[in-house]
Design a binder for these strands. Structure first.
Lengths: 339, 339
DNA sequence: AACGTTTCCGATAACGTTTACAAAAAGTGT
DNA sequence: ACACTTTTTGTAAACGTTATCGGAAACGTT
């Protein structure tokens, strides 16, 4: 392995000077810089990251923690983050966690081992942040949920307003004339902090405002975020409440599962039951019927988060919380209810 | 930060002994071990990874390089790999590369910086391996393409036989009575080494054997692996050859795009045009119509790859190349052709 | 009691960097 | 020519670990 010592020997300068060249210090003569850079290039020398990190006690990496696997929405954002970060000279360090994992605990571990400059939480459960986020003191960003009420100095958040979004979804069903509306998704106990709970909350509030609550127990069927679970939940919901004509699904994946469930019960979307989703993942635009859904702007979510994180890494300042706009995608999965 | 030195001081032993306890060496008295372990636990000390890696010149990590973003098939395997690796005491280090990147070059970089114990290539273009894989000397596994003809001592591969799989797909269309069969997918130049080319090759071979080639130019439309591209390609194909009644799509995502294209041309799947995909990603099982496809066993692909890699990391031996079985998923997207 | 074996432990030299600090070289102004 | 300042360079200590080596203690064996 070729080290800084070799470069020093080969270039005729000391390792101190080589190090200064590597780290772009200004106090190096042009002669030395050019010679050393040449030798570095010739031997395509790469400084040992571990030695560097050991000495400096930080890396130049950004860690990304993705909560919940098989989540196409988060994965789309992840891709964009990677793309954006590739421009900067930061390394990127992705880790996937399953739904049940405690992302903050994991982040603390990562801080100790990887010493990232910042952390991006892609998805997450606010409860874990409440519990133990205090243990983290590097800039962080939470994407897809708002952490403003937590009030940490170093945790920004960017998200669409899930309550408004889900309200808009259900309102759209109402405007189409639906009066027997069901909801699929959210955790079984609707605990505070779980991202799904806000969507449920928004949806239910519109139902209440329009006096469309006939039996909340029978209108609402909990579900995780997966297709499978959406299928299961929708099947249950139809069994419980066959009179339902419109359904708000907590995510697009759940919606896809739900549509298949409708189909397997011998009914059709949207003729018999309308379905509206949430997230706007690219791929449901090719579904037949094209999914009607609340689209979150993944590009913007990624861009703003990365910008804010890099900004705060370079110029420490207090965190921000921003709500990004959503939009309704009018697909083919919602129609007027059958008479 | 709490270091091994602190533990030494606090426990009354030397850092050498503490190190031995940490690394589970046998030459430590039970008294010392217990005392030191207690102090470690009390201060929840975690050895500094960088110092460790600097000293040992290797990490205990496995790097995974995922080629091609938004590929649900590879992402499913990735999940399973992560799951399997979590059992072992190896860290995991994921990196996504876009289609155009040279994964082998990247791997060489990673070897220098991260010093992984092994590398898993998830997807990949054999051409890059031909070019420069020689620069890598740690155990590697290529998933989803076979590297047997390359003959590297340290590169195993696990894949289904893509030629047989695509042959099976087209044969199934033939058995259903289709005689005007189209193909969607593969790179425009069908370069050797590109994973799609083998599937095209298999598909075409069956057409030839059955004298079903009426105009290869008009039967075949190139496409990348994305939904969008599948849509575009299928639209072109129908325009070129409206007489086609069955289509083999090079991946499930392409198939989904293709189905939507059929729909948008005012035709139906499978009544007017049958579509068969490739990969068997979970989620197309919920599609309406449920996709008929060639399923690759992601679980097995992941398991075998991880097993082989860990085995070769611990007991150096020569690489293996194994073909895994595929199976036909009989969905609802293929039917007999219209008279 | 003397010796050889084991078993356990501590001191210390690395690993490849960065960064004070000091030294040397090169300018500057008189 | 001198004393300054400024710029450039080299030296050496540190970062937290592991591993080698040898010493000390404990135990058997004659």
């Amino acid at each position: 392995m070729i080290t800084i010592k070799d470069i020093a020997r080969l270039s005729g300068y000391s390792i101190g000077t080589v190090s200064r060249v590597i780290n772009h210090h200004h106090d190096v003569s042009t002669a030395a810089r050019e010679k050393i850079e040449q030798v570095i290039a010739e031997n395509n020398f790469q400084p040992n990251t571990n030695a560097k990190m050991l000495k400096q006690a930080v890396s130049s990496n950004i860690s990304v923690l993705v909560k919940g696997t098989s989540n196409l929405f988060l994965e789309t954002i992840l891709e964009e983050i990677q793309h954006l970060l590739r421009e900067s000279d930061h390394g990127i360090d992705v880790m996937f966690l399953d739904e049940t994992a405690n992302e903050v605990e994991t982040a603390i571990q990562i801080c100790n081992t990887h010493k990232p400059l910042g952390i991006i939480f892609l998805g997450g459960n606010l409860n874990y942040f409440r519990e133990s986020f205090g243990g983290i003191d590097i800039p962080c960003v939470l994407i897809a949920d708002t952490a403003s009420q937590l009030g940490y100095e170093n945790l920004s958040s960017f998200a669409t307003n899930d309550i408004d979004g889900s309200r808009e979804a259900v309102r759209y069903l109402c405007r189409q004339g639906h009066t027997r509306i069901g909801i699929v998704g959210g955790s079984s106990d609707n605990e505070r902090g779980y991202i799904g709970s806000r969507r449920i909350q928004g949806a239910v509030s519109v139902l209440k405002e329009n006096n469309l609550v006939f039996d909340l127990e029978k209108q609402y069927e909990p579900s995780l975020f997966s297709v499978q679970d959406g299928y299961r939940a929708m099947t249950n919901l139809i069994r419980k409440s066959p009179e339902i004509t419109g359904v708000f699904a907590i995510s697009d994946m759940v919606a896809i599962g739900a549509i298949r469930a409708v189909h397997d019960m011998g009914l059709r979307v949207p003729e018999d039951i309308s379905v509206i989703g949430y997230d706007g993942i690219e791929y449901t635009k090719y579904y037949v019927p094209r999914l009607t859904t609340i689209e979150q702007n993944t590009m913007q979510l990624a861009q703003k988060s990365v910008d804010d994180l890099l900004l705060r890494i370079n110029y420490p300042r207090t965190a921000v919380h921003e709500e990004l706009p959503f939009s309704v995608i009018y697909g083919e999965s919602v129609a007027e209810p059958r008479k």
